[in-house]
Design a binder for these strands. Sequence first.
DNA 1: TCGTGGCGGGG
DNA 2: GTGTACGCCACGA
Length: 801
Amino acid sequence: MSASDIEIYILDASYEVIGGEPHIVIWGIDRDGRRVLLRDRRFRPYFYAIIDKNFYDKIDILLSSIKRLSRPRSPITSLEIVDKKFFGKPVKAIRITTMLPEAVREYRDDVSKIPGIERVVEADIRFSMRYLIDNDIYPCTWHRFRVVERPRSGEYRVDAEYEVIDILHRVEEFVPPRLRVLAFDIEVYNPRGIPKANKDPIIIISLYNSDGEYIEFTANDKDDRNLIKSFIDYVLKYDPDIIVGYNSNRFDWPYLIERSRFLGIKLDVSRRRGVEPSPSVHGHISVPGRLNVDLYDFAEEMSEIKIKSLDEVAEYLGVMKKSERTNVPWYEIYRYWDDEKLRPILLRYARDDAISTYGIAEKILPFAIQLSSVTGIPLDQVGTASVGFRLEWFLIRIAYMRDELVPNRIEREYEPYRGAIVLEPKKGVHEDIAVLDFSAMYPSIMMKYNIGPDTLVKDPEICKEDKCFEAPETGYKFVKEPSAFFKIALEILVKARKIVREQLKKYSVDSIEYRVLDARQRALKILANACYGYMGWVGARWYCRECAEAVTDFGRETIRKAIDIARNLGLAVIYGDTDSLFVKYDKEKIDKLIKTVEDVLGLEIKIDKIYRRVFFTEAKKRYIGLTDDGRIDVVGFEAVRGDWAEIAKELQEKTADIVLKTMDPKKAVEFVRNEIEKLRKGVSEGSIPIDGFIIWKTITKPLKEYEVDAPHVVAAKYLEKAGYRVEVGDKIGYVIIRGSGKISDRARPYINVDVRDIDIDYYIEHQIIPAVIRILGYFGITEKHLKTVGRTGRSLFDYRK
DNA sequence: TCGTGGCGGGG
DNA sequence: GTGTACGCCACGA
């Protein structure tokens, strides 16, 4: 057959060993929408041995020592002496190539023991990633290949199979082909709380696809054989490119896999015939040929959302309102299934879950796809990879392009260092305040002062003649030239983002191009912002504590200088944190400030927002602002924290709203008192829902390791006793009930608590009053004012302001 | 009364 | 398995 050129949108890459030879397998979609498989047999695994400088004249000896290690199963096929850089310094290395990817690990250990080999690097880079990196291929991106078509083997569920004979180039087009997306959700029979796959059947599988169809499979009472078979048939028929779920890597997939194994059904849903889904890197489930994306991974990163349940996230993203959906508490699912009358409700719940999962995918996938395209991590792994790993894979690509060898991951002891400064706020209410922000302060500092492990100066001798930057307090020095590795990476990110933002202007906000480009610029920004934190992360390959410390050091100096400039211009600085300044709004002076900061410090600062009024107590990191358009921004207070009862948060927010808008604390006091009375009545009558009283806290370590029994730990132990499994990272919802003893003795999981047992006094004393006093206290209002019932209380008021 | 452990949201 | 700074609760000496 003859060669031809095709353009492929890359979905995923993996490898297979066939006849002792590794084959790279690329899954993709061509321009005609055909699902295709590309096979590249030309690539071989390798790693590097860096040569000790004292052995540069004995390289021949090293080569023959390495050659002697070669074993027939996977022989060393080539040894090549190469000039590379390691942390910016030139080094000579031997590139050792073998046959089987698994053999790299064995050779690495043996080679590193050879005298004259300083260290072995890049032996821990996965083979399929190695292929993508070396060939500049990015997942979720279009690429051009020269190929020869092969007869279809029948082993793969694709429209065509090709053999790669040349990798041509990447296509600068970011809009994906029309991808088939399938959202799924399973419901499981769970009479004992935690379902067990060898006992409890799957009762419903609900699905929603990108053609707008809803599909539902149900068990025959408690027999789920046909349900699972129908699910498999459906997946094969619809043939999705992307399968999305919510917490599916931790629940739906593992359960489906286990349950199928128990029933002796082959979960044959992948594009590789007969290969079932299986656990893979970073706790993700791999479905060959399809991209399995767990949306929960992305929800987890959204700090704006406190409770990461499917219904909350769907509500937040504007996908489905909680009030318009059916919800069934998970511990009651089996009851709804058993009860003929309740079963339709359970089915509606399953449907709403599948539809909202799909809706969330529509919001998140464009960003996830760009994150995959920019970092080079396949889409199904980019969500499970942490921020640090995402940046690291990007850095590895930059290293490859610059002939920099990738450092090994080293186990290190964690060392703390100083962070940013937070100014003491000027307490009280301030009118017309502008909030100025440095744009990308830490990335800018890293670039400006050329910070990185490769430019960090160990010998101060080389800093003569003004050749270095010096951090003001820590004294760490960085050579001005050549550019630091991080500076190069950041410049690439900044430049790419600038280009994307330029392109963005050409499209209307509702066009597909705009959405794609906007997602791309966000992905680029996130990577740039992660660089500082990455350097201070002990697990990082390019870890550099001194560098991270220098960044915060320069940051503190920068903001101090900006404050001086503001003061010299006669601008009062009310507050500041890390990279922001709150100053009295004065258009002319602020313009001057912005310009001076740019001239003197070489960094960009701009107005982020303007508050008509802003209120500070003496506490740092807490304030309430009234914006131009009449919105209230509550920052740092209980109202925005997840670990306070909803009733307290609500009252605090309303108090803030009343006070800031009317400047009349009396009105707020009146309001709070009324609300407290309503709550008392509601609790004693049992007429209000318990939801507002639930306090959520996270379990951060195994329950046994807790030395003190904090309320949420006590509640978690109750849950365990009731048969529920409590794991690290679980959010425990508890309430405080009436009775005697410590608060923690009276903490209970909110499940099955009657609202009439709620200790309303605890909530008033420890939740509502502290929360509202935090604001009203400034105006001279005390607990007494809030607790005194009736009109007599009024004479007690003594306002300071 | 005060130090400590624990926790979370945010610049 | 990005970073530190910060405020506040509950507990217990």
